[in-house]
C-alpha cells in the first residue's frame, strides 16, 4: 500500500510541486495544509505516515506545528522544507524530532531520497 503523506506549505505552488513529485514516485497525498494549525488538525484526523512541513507560515509556523505533532504522536515522521539561511531553525527542528530537511529550491530526486529515508528509519 502506498505511504500516505500530508503536505504543509502556505504557498500553493510548493504544495502542487511537492504533490506532483510524490505522486509520480508512488506516494499517496492524503491532505494539504496551508499552515501549522491546519497541519495539526489534519494530522489528528488523517494519521499520515509522513508530514512535509514548511517553516515560515502564517497562523502557526512549522516549528511549533512540529513540536505539537510530536507531542501528540512521538513517532510522527516529519520532514522540514526550508529556504536557504534558516539553519538555526533547521537545527531546532532536528532537535525537536524532525527526521530530515529539504532545502528549497529542491530537485525531485532530493525530495524522494529524503522522504524515502525518513519513512525507512
Amino acid at each position: 500500500m502506498a505511504k500516505r503523506i500530508l503536505i504543509t506549505d502556505d504557498a500553493l505552488f510548493m504544495r502542487v510541486t511537492l504533490k506532483n513529485i510524490l505522486v509520480q514516485n508512488g506516494y499517496e497525498i492524503v491532505g494539504e495544509a496551508c499552515n501549522g494549525a491546519e497541519a495539526i488538525q489534519m494530522y489528528k484526523s488523517l494519521k499520515p505516515d509522513l508530514v512535509t512541513m514548511d517553516i515560515t507560515m502564517p497562523e502557526l509556523d512549522g516549528l511549533s506545528a512540529l513540536k505539537e505533532i510530536r507531542s501528540i504522536d512521538p513517532a510522527a515522521n516529519v520532514v522540514m522544507c526550508t529556504a536557504m539561511g534558516q539553519s538555526k531553525m533547521v537545527a531546532e527542528a532536528l532537535g525537536s524530532g524532525a527526521k530530515d530537511f529539504i532545502i528549497k529550491p529542491f530537485q525531485a530526486e532530493t525530495v524522494v531520497e529524503a522522504i524515502g529515508k525518513a519513512l525507512a528509519a
Binding site: F13, M84, K104
Partner: peptide, 14 residues
C-alpha cells in the same frame, strides 16, 4: 502567481 511569489521569496531569502 504562487510560483512567482515563491521565486521572489527564494531570491530574497537567499
Amino acid at each position: 502567481a504562487s510560483a512567482l511569489a515563491e521565486l521572489a521569496n527564494l531570491i530574497s531569502r537567499n
